[in-house]
Write a protein that binds this DNA or RNA. Structure first.
Lengths: 222, 222
DNA sequence: CTGCATCCGCTTCGATACTG
DNA sequence: CAGTATCGAAGCGGATGCAG
């Protein structure tokens, strides 16, 4: 392990999660537990030996752990530990800072709908949920579903939510990004057939209210 | 430039600041403007060509900018832009997450007192400054001075502070780290001759109050 | 002296192939 | 499915050189 050898909290953190792919592996596992192959498929371009290396070092650092699923599904599953979950603020702040970089569009880049979940958490960070919470939102972006738990004290990924959500939001990746960055209004996107909001009128309205409270990132950047 | 080629705010952020040394260069420049040689000296182990490469790519990304000092001091100075200053939350969250990693002690690691400034900002993040602010603190850690601006709305690095501070805190690096992580009390450190707090009794008391409000990191980690 | 560029040995990465 | 093995390419670290 190559170290910066600095007595500095930032440098020591980067010694562990600063290597290529490390934080993206954590990102994937923050959204939910994954098997080796799932991770490889979800991180296009990573070499399998490199993934194995990273999983080992992240495990040694106490950030992730592996568990064997009982038969008949006998398989290895990776998940984040509590220490690993402590990286949420780091990743969210990176998402906040990186959000304006999505303006240039998707282009040829890879995309999975679940990545917008982090953008949601990032974009709703600091936004008041008063009058909106509690609300369980299901996001279906590019066919991939994730859930957001809107609570009085903030918004977070709902990892262990079961049952139906209060409201379902459906869109493709670029539309979701544009909505979150206030490049387009929810209602306009729906009117143009780019997005769909399904649920009780009250719940759907509360989701729109929340999105409406987002400031948008475009003004905050160069 | 190697890219992850993912339409994800985290991945796009890491495309820019995820390379080795990049965030540490920003860390240095967040503390204050620096010349090329200062940066190289402050980042032990970095190759000069690599530093030049990084400075170029960070400049292209709009994170830093170079300016020529007028004669007779004719020299190039690097400083962060507003966009670069937007990385403060990322670096502070990294410092928060990495703070427990300082527990193992300094060992053979390099150290500059200014690095504790970030730990201070990290550790005071979220701590109420009520009854303490406004307060201008000068930190002299391992002979290097930095200033903290304690305000009602939080604590930040005082980049352009002039004049005398309200209170001066003097310690070596490890003692400063131990105090901030609540491994030792300020008063005990002072009693043991490890630290010194100079200033009006009222101002010094307010600094102690603020430090006393810190929860400490040891419990929050594995 | 500062701000690099060049060269070189070493490490890491990426792609592919292969195995229990 | 969950990795390991291999190998060329790219990146890094250290030393040196050099122009302004």
């Amino acid at each position: 392990m190559r170290s910066y050898a600095q007595f500095c909290p930032v440098a020591r953190a980067l010694d562990i999660v600063g290597e290529r792919w490390a934080l993206l592996i954590v990102r994937e596992l923050l959204i939910g537990p994954r098997r080796f192959t799932d991770l490889r498929d979800g991180l296009p371009g990573i070499a399998s030996n490199l993934l194995a290396d990273r999983l080992r070092s992240l495990e040694r650092a106490g950030i992730i752990e592996r568990s064997e699923l009982p038969p008949p599904a006998a398989s290895t599953v990776y998940r984040v530990t509590e220490r690993g979950r402590g990286l949420v603020p780091v990743i969210v702040e990176l998402a906040v800072w990186g959000a304006p970089l999505l303006e240039s569009g998707r282009g040829e880049d890879h995309f999975f709908g679940r990545w917008m979940t982090l953008l949601e958490v990032a974009v709703f960070r600091g936004v008041s949920t008063a009058g909106v919470a509690p609300l369980l939102v299901e996001l279906r972006v590019d066919g991939e579903a994730a859930r957001l738990d809107i609570r009085e004290d903030g918004v977070q990924i709902a990892l262990d939510a079961v049952g139906p959500a209060d409201v379902v939001f459906i869109a493709d990746g670029e539309t979701a990004a544009r909505i979150l960055m206030r490049d387009i209004e929810v209602d306009d996107a729906v009117a143009q057939g780019l997005a769909e909001v399904i649920g009780e009128p009250d719940a759907a309205g509360r989701l729109r209210t929340l999105i409406g409270r987002v400031d948008g990132f475009r003004s905050s950047t160069a």
